[in-house]
Amino acid sequence: MPVYERGYRHWENSGKKAAPAWWAIARRGIAEPIKSRRLLFLLVIAWVPAIVKGGILYFTFKMGELSRLLGGDWTDVTSAGFHAFLMWQAPFVLIILAIIGANLITKDREDNGLALYFSRPLGLKDYVAGKGAIIMTYYFAVTLFPLYALCIFGYLVTNGATGMEMLIEIPLRGTLYCMLAGTSYALVLLAISSLSTRTAFSVMWWVLLVAGTDALAEIIALFDARLAIMSFPGQFLNGGTLIFGADPNLEGVAPAVSLGMVILYGAAGWLILRRRIRPVEVVS
């Protein structure tokens, strides 16, 4: 059909409020992966520990001390018990963030999408905030949201915790920890994603960083406990003990140092992102 028959109308603004650019990026990035059944299945699996803990909390109430002896951390309704719950979620965090986050910038770089983004009225902060919000949402989906659900359920079924602890104190500790850890994870993962134009490489670097450094730290910490500081995920959990008031995870590393490392990881991620994300074309 010739152009003159198709016509063109100039846009008439409806006057509705436009969403900020970061939210437009985040909304699409959050909604798109949910269409995958495999990811949905994985998210359901990631809630199994929460369901199991919820069930144990219920039976603890019904069976008393007997199940408490059998259950260990699973029956613990103090904040340390909930920190232990976040530790159990670590494998899900590794896998789901690899699926969701590793290609977030890689794909844009591979397809020269950055030129499209930055020809729009948005800056680096909008872009990173949008992409980071996607990662944080899925991080919360397997950590913070089940923790909230457990707190509410725990408050309803147990008599070992007060409303103050279960409905205010533990959710607040959890929120603080997950916000801090989620932001740091997001910045690090985005930085890794910005380093390559191949998703496979980004996934590999992420797995090496999380699982690789953890395995390495386990081995070399046998010779010197302080070397456990090399474990990337270990610092998150060890730092978390300070927030949750639990016993330290790592023998040779103070929780405050680990918490500092977590903040340092995030800062390093941001610095890498500032260098790597530029609205330039990929010239092949």
Binding site: N112, G113, L116
Partner: peptide
């Protein structure tokens, strides 16, 4: 802006 190379958002 219409870039020369790439410029298609995948998926």
């Amino acid at each position: 802006w219409m870039p020369e190379r790439g410029g298609i958002l995948p998926d």
